[in-house]
């Protein structure tokens, strides 16, 4: 197999991993105002992702680095072209990350509220903007002959991309709320289940519209099939949730996100960043990729280490498989 195709798949896999994993972190973060009735509730919510948010977030660093190593032109064009949206994502991730660590350092409620707000914003902004970014990649952006983005920030906020952003926002929100119902006990679990149903129905409508638009405007046969599969998985996730099958529902949400991301990658292939102004300026897996030698080295490393990484990350999830309850949250001041 051509190594550029292998690396297109690996980069796709990295982003699938990132959106499936950090996706529910974003959802849990956004759910604080909906499910966290008091501080103990909010601490239960945060502790469902406490041990794993950092490893989940690391997927985007590794995805970015893989992009840099395997497709330097893609990395360079994408990151410099989407400068301001990426800046907002970075700032949001900074605020979210430090808030997890800082919020429990002091017990005043004003202190905690400030960091709760930052967790909500720090989760919602990337959840929305990643969708905007990927929708724009699929839609195509104006590129000059040197592959530099020639549009403005506001060109990125077109209706299709905004719908893409809304789709990821809602997908991640529902994903996170289903995760909460899977990982908590008692009242909050019940409320999460009800919220997941309501959010799920809205997500089905928005995601179906986005995937349909993608299929009609940019789709291929493969991407259309994947979009259809994503839609079926999403409906299945909502139905499973209403029947209290939390594990199944979470698995189907993960499948939905994975299939939707794959559908976008299949819609792109063999381009990686189509130029909307002139197809000759498009970046493809061929003209954006690294040399055969670099791809070869990186392939060996990825094939050896990715299984190992998945194994020890799986181990972490296994260790922290138990549900988090209010009883486990120590009384304030004991910390």
């Amino acid at each position: 197999m051509d190594l550029t195709i292998l690396w297109f798949c690996i980069v796709g896999f990295m982003f699938v991993g990132y959106f499936v994993l950090d996706g529910f972190d974003f959802g849990v973060g956004m759910s604080l105002p909906f499910l966290g009735r008091d501080d103990t509730d909010r601490r239960v919510l945060i502790n469902t992702i406490g041990p794993v948010w950092d490893l989940n977030e690391t997927w985007v660093i590794v995805a970015g680095a893989s992009l840099f190593a395997a497709f330097p032109e893609w990395y360079a064009t994408l990151f410099s072209g989407f400068y301001l949206p990426l800046l907002l994502i970075l700032l949001a991730l900074i605020l979210r990350g430090v808030s997890f660590e800082y919020r429990h350092q002091r017990s005043e409620s004003a202190w905690k509220k400030r960091f709760d707000r930052m967790i909500v914003i720090g989760s919602a902004v990337p959840a929305f903007l990643w969708g905007v970014a990927f929708a724009n990649i699929v839609r195509g952006v104006p590129l000059d002959a040197g592959h530099n983005y020639t549009g403005t920030f506001f060109d990125l906020l077109n209706p299709y991309a905004l719908l893409g952003g809304l789709t990821t926002l809602l997908l991640f929100f529902t994903h996170g709320v289903v995760f909460v119902s899977l990982k908590t006990e008692g009242d909050i679990r019940e409320r999460a289940r009800r919220l997941a149903t309501r959010a799920g129905v809205l997500t089905v409508v928005v995601a179906a519209a986005f995937l349909l638009w993608t299929t009609l405007a940019h789709g291929t046969v493969a991407s259309a099939l994947l979009s259809a599969a994503a839609a079926v998985a999403l409906i299945g996730a909502v139905l499973a949730n209403t029947r209290g099958r939390e594990g199944l529902s979470f698995g189907l949400m993960a499948a939905t996100i994975a299939l939707a991301v794959l559908s976008l990658f299949f819609a792109l292939f063999p381009d990686v960043m189509p130029a909307s102004n002139d197809p000759a300026n498009s970046l493809t897996i061929e003209n954006a990729s690294s040399s055969a030698y670099t791809l070869q080295i990186m392939s060996w490393v990825a094939l050896v280490f990715l299984p190992l990484i998945l194994a020890y990350q799986g181990f972490t999830y296994w260790i922290f498989r138990k549900r988090v309850s209010r009883a486990q949250i120590p009384v304030e001041g004991a910390h």
């Binding site: 690391t58 660093i61 590794v62 680095a65 893989s66 840099f68 190593a69 395997a70 330097p72 990395y75 690294s290 670099t294 080295i297 990186m298 490393v301 990825a302 280490f305 990715l306 990484i309």
Partner: peptide
Amino acid sequence: GAPLALEGL
């Protein structure tokens, strides 16, 4: 990019 990706992985 290679050492950066190695660092990540």
